[in-house]
Nucleic acid binder design. Structure first.
Lengths: 210, 210
DNA sequence: TTGGAATATTTACATTGTTAAGTAAATTTG
DNA sequence: CAAATTTACTTAACAATGTAAATATTCCAA
């Protein structure tokens, strides 16, 4: 029925309004600013209306978490054009760092905050966006090993390690734990890139110098 | 004056009561359970009395953050007995992981949550406990380089990288982002140790095989 | 004993997430 | 088209939270 469809669409539109308002709020001033009432203010509805479109606040955060993963994918649009798998892995790392530092609030939702994982546990236990990203990483690491850019037989373990490394960099940085290491803010990102360079150079198979 | 001293001591005792109560609360049920009112209930004072001993909740969290660093030091009591600096670095990593996984709430305060760093920014900008830990790490990495266990000339950069790596492991684990990589909970810690092994083996100077 | 400082409590307020009840408009049904 | 029902939204309210101001109590020195 056409009328049904239109209603569905309107419902989705208001959901989008809510999400956009939430994004605006936390982009501009962090998560403390994301309250149901402020969202409602922005979209010019009453606070309780929000609950007609989302079960609770955590569900909103989870939806934003999904948006974050889409955003991160955009950062990786240039990956397929890189043939050398180790270079590709390196670029993935750079993109990951750039994404995290340029979108710290999204990054928090995706990899730090508890709420999205709680919701996911309640609703099927599938962390689809995360799993997807992991799959790409693992494929790249596997290729690196097949083509002898990396030594080792366990792409699983190495993928986990690579991810931990870049996540460590980003999460320490956005939670202000690196100020001792890098007092000047302008040097933070360069330092992180340097660290990534060191990492990639170090794990590269030294025998594969042609 | 002796009477002054006794009063000082009593003040410190109540502060300790407050901190112990807070620890009990978040150990038993996580941070959601740490509220001024629950703390007050536990120590059998009224909620506002807490404010006579701490400026606000963030200051309590920051004090707990300090306690966490003391606890972490205890994990490292065995380090001085290890002569080989690379082995020592390895053990530091293991201890770090063990501490984080066994005390996730403290770990959060020390390396993930915003509040303590906010307080520190307001009161002098010195992250003393953190700086101290970093100093130990840097000394070890420096020794590794001097004795040729690690290649490279920048202990600063490598220390940052090592820390990022283990922090990445721990923080992904305690925020439940590793369930895809390691579905069974019992295998999580072994996997993290394996990852650390891989890391240390990989960064070790390959030329230094005697 | 009394007055003032230190310590504690009572009351209160604003903000938060969230639920329950009510209302007005849109839609379906007869 | 009129009545009934569903939908979309709002108002009012609740409980929990951090915290401030006003008030009360305790304690010690003069």
């Amino acid at each position: 029925m056409g009328i049904q469809e239109r209603k569905e669409k309107q419902k989705l539109e208001i959901r989008k309004l809510i999400l956009d308002a939430s994004i605006k709020l936390f982009i501009e001033e962090g998560f403390g600013n994301v309250t149901i009432r402020k969202i409602a203010d922005l979209i010019e509805y009453s606070p309780t209306t929000v609950y007609l479109y989302f079960k609770d606040k955590d569900e909103i955060l989870t939806a934003l978490h999904d948006v974050g993963f889409q955003k991160m994918q955009e950062y990786n649009h240039d990956l397929p054009s890189i043939n050398n798998p180790l270079l590709r892995l390196h670029k993935m790392g750079e993109n990951y760092i750039n994404f995290g530092m340029e979108n710290p609030e999204f990054y928090e939702l995706m990899f730090i905050m508890d709420e999205p994982m709680k919701v996911i546990e309640e609703t099927g236990c599938e962390w689809k966006p995360g799993d997807n990203a992991i799959k790409v990483l693992k494929a790249t690491v596997t290729e690196c090993m097949e083509k002898n850019y990396l030594i080792g037989t366990d792409p699983h373990l190495v993928s986990l390690s690579v991810w931990s490394f870049v996540h460590g960099l980003v999460s320490l940085a956005i939670r202000d734990r690196m100020e001792k290491f890098v007092p000047e803010k302008e040097l933070l990102l360069p330092m992180m890139r340097q660290s990534l360079n060191w990492f990639v150079n170090t794990i590269e198979n030294p025998a594969r110098n042609q």
